[in-house]
Structure formats: structure tokens, C-alpha cells
Design a protein around this nucleic acid. Structure first.
Lengths: 222, 222
DNA sequence: CACACAATCTGAACGGTATTAAGATTGGGT
DNA sequence: ACCCAATCTTAATACCGTTCAGATTGTGTG
């Protein structure tokens, strides 16, 4: 602790990195502000010049994780974009793979996803919605099925990731993970396409979902 | 503290009740073992004669919450069971309604769902699987679509609940919640039914997503 | 270059936390 | 009546988040 300069240089990201590493090593709650500070080589109170509280660090970390997920998903979707649902299948696979590669970090995000983050961030929901719009334009998805479909697909993918990360569902091989993700996405899309206009079992023509399913892209919970 | 008997009588459930009430009042982390003990009227260390640690209480609470959810879902499914997917729609609505009625408690369960709980418990997954079996028997779902379908439906319902409870999606009215749950379940079921035997690009041209989704031929599962 | 100022970090402290150990109290069985 | 095991209490330990006064350093201004 003698050779280190008094000013760290970029303590903020060092704290984020170390907290994330500890989460990766010991689980979602296997870290403390103090230990992170010690590991970085500064005093515990130094963190408070970069984060208003421990919770602020948690929030910032989950935003950073979210940003990385966004980049990864845009890449995956762009690379796989072809005919039909391939882009969305890549979205689902990328989402679930990301969760399983770093279960603890994914659980951190699942639990503390930042509410008031940067609205321009590459949010999974945005990417998904854009890809669904493409499907409508290309005629692969009926326009009538589009409103609210983003949340149906997102729920399916998010739920699969959550079940896997929390150990309620187990898939042995990476191939099985991809297959399950693909099946979830394709089933949901087929169901969305076939159900909407006058499907089987959909009782009385309910009012359209455009008004009632309020998707707030940049909104957050109270 | 003078008129209370030295032995509480049923301290274990009293601790669980109080912890749950505090979670309901102040959020997932708005409680401590000490405060729970004080609220019940015993010393902080008394809890350790009923739970090995704070985490054990967390686990026990999440198991109890799970059991209640199970009872509720069996009731809902049995009551609504009719032709076709009505039972599963009731399952989805019950699941999501339960989550929204007590968001903090639901988040507690979402985060700490017990891994090694009672295997005979009424687990949502069991109820769902049984209902899917009924659909196969009644001919509403092709037998070929049955294997693994439970996890597809569960993922969709679980994901919807998770997105709502974490504020990533917002539905204003209870009717909108029910509608969204119904749409998720029916879409998934229709998709499962239509996709499986010879769907769009599903079985044979099993493309290798390891190449297509990411550049790296890598990935792992838990 | 000198000087002031803001940003950054340290050290010590406060109250709260989980957890443990040793001892007091009580109910049930013999 | 008595012993034992279960239950609860008191006290103590170690860690946690957070705050505050003060030391150290970079930066811009004359």
C-alpha cells in the first residue's frame, strides 16, 4: 500500500469490476463494499466519492451488465438475421447463453435491474421490438399480432433464462440450451401469428391489446 | 416482556410470519433477523433454535410461499378446468396475479426459491405438467409436442410474472394482467401444437447456432 | 511559478448486523 | 420429585454500511 499512488485514477470502474468479480466468485450476495474497497486497495470510505451508497453501486453495476447484454444481443441478432425468425432465435439463444455463462451476475441483474437507466441504452426489449417490426414488414408476422407481441416473446425468453439461472430447470449440454431457446422463440412466434385474428379457443373477440398492454420502454416501476 | 411466557409456543411460524410481513411492508431486503425477533418479542438469538441461520429462514420462507402458490394454483386450475386450455389459462392468470398481489414476497421467492425443498410439494411445475398431460389425453395437444412443453409454458408464465414484478413491464388494470397472461398461455400452446411435427425449420435442418449466433464455437450450460 | 480550490483518499468512529457461547428457565417423561 | 432436553436470554465477537474531520493530490488562475 506504499507504492500505490494516492489517487487511484479510475476507482469507479475498478470498484465495479471488483464487485462483479466477487459476485462471479461467491454468488450474488458474496461481497461487501468494504471487501471490494480492500481488494482494490483503497479505504472503505473512498467508494463514497464515486457512489452515493452501496445500493448506487448495485444499480450502476446492473446498468453496466445490461449494456453489455444489449451489445451482445444486437451483435447476435444482426449476424443471424436472415429469413423469418432467425434473428429472434438468435436473440433468445444469446439471452439465455449470456445468463448461463455468468449465472451469479445474471441473477444480480435479474434481481436489481436498473429502473432509471439511460433511456437510449440498448435494452433487450428495444432490440426485440425492432426485430418484431422487421418480421411484420417482411410479412412473417401478421400486423394484427404485433401489438404487445414484444412482451410475449420477452416473457418467454426472460422466463427461460430465469428458470435456468435459478436452478428450477436444468439442461445438460449447451446444445440443449440452444434448442430449448429456439423452441421457446419459435413456438411463441407461431402461436402469436396463428392466434390473433380469430384463433381457436380465443373466446369473444377481446379488445385489441394496443391500448391495454402498455409497454413503457424507458419507464420503470415505482 | 414481563407478561409473556418464557416459551413462545410456536416461535418458528411467528418468525416466518413476521419476516414475511416486513418484506411485504418494506421490500425484499427491508428486514433483519434482529428486527424480526424484536417484533415477535424474543431475543435475537432465540431464532437460532429454529433456524440454523438467517439464510435458513429465507429458504424456509420461500418454501412456505411456494406451498401457498401451489395450493392456489391447484384450486384455480381445478375450478377452471373445462375444454381445451382453460385450465392452463387459469394457471397462468393465477401465477401472475399471485405475483402482483404481493410483489415483494414474490420477488423474494423469485430470488431465493428453495432448491432442495419437499419433493412432494405442490410445485407449479407439477401442476402445469399434469394439466398438459390432460391436454394430450383429450387430444388438444399432439403427443409429439408434449416432451419439454411444460418448461416452455412455465418459462412464458414465469417470465411474465418476473417482468411485471420487477417493473420492466407495466399493466395498468387487473383485466390487462389477466388478458396478457391468457395471451401468453394460449400463444405458447398454439405454437407448441403447430410447431412440433414438421415445423418451420425446426427438426432436420438443425443448424448449428454456435456458429451462427456468435463467432466463437463455444458456450456452456450450468 | 505560486497559490488556492476542488477532487480524492485516509482514519476513526457510530449504530446495526449475523452469529456464537454460556447460562437461565421451562415443560415433559420417568 | 427429579432429571433432561428444549427453549430463551445475556454478553460478546466480528463484520457491515455510512459519516465526518482531516490529509493528500491534481488543476486552473494570477
Amino acid at each position: 500500500m506504499a507504492d500505490r499512488p494516492y489517487h487511484h485514477g479510475d476507482l469507479r470502474t475498478a470498484l465495479l469490476d471488483t464487485a462483479e468479480a466477487l459476485i462471479r466468485e461467491r454468488g450474488v450476495d458474496g461481497w461487501s463494499l468494504r471487501e471490494v474497497s480492500v481488494r482494490v486497495g483503497v479505504s472503505p470510505s473512498a467508494a463514497y466519492h464515486h457512489f452515493a451508497s452501496r445500493d448506487a453501486l448495485v444499480q450502476a453495476l446492473s446498468q453496466r451488465v445490461l449494456a453489455r447484454l444489449g451489445e451482445r444481443l444486437t451483435d447476435a441478432v444482426e449476424r443471424a438475421r436472415g429469413d423469418g425468425a432467425d434473428g429472434l432465435v438468435a436473440f433468445g439463444c444469446g439471452y439465455v447463453r449470456w445468463a448461463l455463462e455468468d449465472p451469479a451476475v445474471a441473477r444480480h441483474w435479474l434481481a436489481f435491474n436498473a429502473g432509471g437507466g439511460d433511456p437510449t441504452a440498448l435494452h433487450p426489449h428495444h432490440i426485440l421490438a425492432a426485430e418484431l417490426d422487421r418480421l411484420v414488414e417482411s410479412g412473417d408476422l401478421p400486423a394484427a399480432a404485433r401489438p404487445g407481441a414484444d412482451f410475449v416473446v420477452w416473457a418467454a425468453v426472460h422466463g427461460l433464462a430465469a428458470l435456468l439461472v435459478h436452478g428450477l430447470m436444468r439442461l445438460e449440454t449447451p446444445q440443449a440450451v440452444d434448442d430449448q431457446a429456439e423452441r421457446v422463440v419459435r413456438s411463441t412466434l407461431i402461436g402469436l401469428a396463428r392466434q390473433t385474428p380469430p384463433p381457436l379457443g380465443w373466446p369473444t373477440p377481446r379488445s385489441d391489446y394496443t391500448e391495454r398492454v402498455t409497454g413503457a420502454p424507458d419507464g420503470q416501476a415505482g
